[in-house]
Amino acid sequence: MSEKKESLFSKKNRKLLKDPLNDNNPVTTQVLGICSALAITVQLKPAIVMALSVLVVLSVANVVVSLMRNLIPSRIRIIVQLVVIATLVILVDQVLKAFVYDVSKELSVFVGLIITNCIIMGRLEAFALGNKPWKSFLDGLGNAFGYGWILIAVAFFRELLGAGTLFGYPVLEKLGLYEMGYENNGMMILPPMALITVGIIIWIQRMKNRDLIES
């Protein structure tokens, strides 16, 4: 083997971590994992809990599948992947129920829906099945962060404009905006505005990087 041994954070590995944050973002470019990205972004707290849950499930599932990649027969790989993911999601769900019960109630079915979150299946299929564990781990982290920041950005705007709070803290009231005649936009809390907010994020992102524009 003449291949040089790569250091843990070589340029290529850092690229794996950094690319999904912007140019190859799972939500806005790869169009994966939209369902949960939109449904739980009314407030910041559940959005952050969701982002962390996905982070754990995605990075661990990537490592596990990558370790097993030479053992899994390709015909039943989807079932194997689903079992790995479902087991991890059950663990996450139990942890959430034990430590942050109120948030877990708020997320309701969407914790379970991490199983069918296409980001996880997509990354397992596209990356973990063909790469070594460390690289898969980085890829999982990168994609989960890319997913997380979109989630948090959408939740930030929806909570701030819709309810005038951040993490439940009444920011706008303290700033004295209400006395000047400002009113909350109740529309932002309703589901359709999540779609429009993501649409606007995509718009801004593609204006900055013209290569992503679809013909």
């Binding site: 806005t28 169009v31 309703l190 589901p191 359709p192 505005m193 999540a194 779609l195 429009i196 993501v198 649409g199 606007i200 995509i202 718009w203 801004i204 992102q205 593609r206 204006m207 013209r210 524009i213 679809e214 013909s215």
Partner: peptide, 23 residues
């Protein structure tokens, strides 16, 4: 449609508008 909105972006926004109608 403006370039950066073409494809995915406009689909999101239309779905949002349809959602408002369904509400």
């Amino acid at each position: 449609v403006p370039g950066p909105l073409r494809g995915l972006g406009i689909t999101f926004i239309i779905t949002g508008l349809m959602g408002i109608a369904f509400m």
